[in-house]
């Protein structure tokens, strides 16, 4: 393994770990639930993505053949992360977790209106 590739792998791994850490800091630091929701999407995309890219580069250099299986983990996370973020947000809206009060009222009014229309 050449030094250049070693530096690349090190940089990618550090980048991934840094973004995972920043995502978790956001999870603790931000004030309300919907702002906290933005932390994990970062950790998934560039955090795990960068780390897996580094790992693929490392194994490709060590084994001298292209080892791309690990991209499947990244692909799977890219497909599932929006689904889980969406359903958690939906659960939070269902439980009426605290957020902008204006929106709650307008949406509740709209829903009642729709129900009235359905009834009549």
């Amino acid at each position: 393994m050449t030094t250049f590739i070693e530096y690349m792998v090190a940089a990618l791994i550090l980048l991934g770990a840094l973004f995972a850490l920043i995502g978790s800091i956001g999870l603790v630091k931000l004030p309300d639930f919907f702002r906290r929701l933005h932390g994990p999407t970062k950790a998934t995309t560039l955090g795990v993505g960068g780390m897996i890219l580094g790992s693929v580069l490392f194994f490709t250099a060590v084994e001298r053949t292209f080892q791309f299986q690990e991209f499947l983990v990244s692909l799977f996370l890219f497909i599932t992360a929006p689904a889980s973020a969406y359903i958690i947000a939906k659960a939070a809206l269902h439980l009426k977790v605290q957020y902008d009060a204006e929106y709650i009222e307008s949406e509740a009014a709209a829903k009642e209106e729709q129900q009235d229309q359905n009834l009549s």
Partner: peptide, 13 residues
């Protein structure tokens, strides 16, 4: 959910 994701990163490491 975030813990799961960080664990995946740790295992890759």
């Amino acid at each position: 959910d975030t813990m799961y994701i960080n664990t995946i990163a740790l295992i890759v490491l």
